[in-house]
């Protein structure tokens, strides 16, 4: 017997907890389509009015960098400390800029 979830698509759910804040990834669920995913997300993830807005995205549509790629993605930044404000030593009286 096949599990029904295998016939459904996987969706990732993002919830904006308050106006003005970013949508945050909160979890995933199975659904037939976007509309259904939105309804399930409401029932599943916002039972205590955790949010004011929900996004659902098909998991397959998410293209993510892999941990193994970390080196070529992020290493080039490591030798650029001058991109950080703390790199610049200024006299005390003006150091709050």
């Amino acid at each position: 017997m096949t599990n029904i979830t295998e016939k459904l698509e996987l969706f990732e759910v993002f919830v904006r907890s308050k106006r003005g804040l970013d949508h945050k990834h909160i979890g995933s669920l199975h659904a037939e389509d976007h509309e259904q995913a939105l309804e399930y997300a409401r029932d599943c993830y916002t039972r205590r009015t955790e949010g004011v807005s929900i996004w659902v995205v098909k998991s397959d549509d998410i293209c993510a960098s892999q941990e193994d790629d970390a080196e070529c993605f992020y290493d080039p930044s490591d030798d650029k400390p001058y991109r950080h404000a703390t790199y610049y030593v200024l006299p005390d009286p003006v150091n709050n800029m």
């Binding site: 790199y87 610049y88 200024l90 800029m97």
Partner: peptide
């Protein structure tokens, strides 16, 4: 913040 600090440092 780094933009302003590097500028001030250069002027200093």
């Amino acid at each position: 913040s780094f933009h302003q600090r590097q500028g001030y440092e250069a002027i200093l």
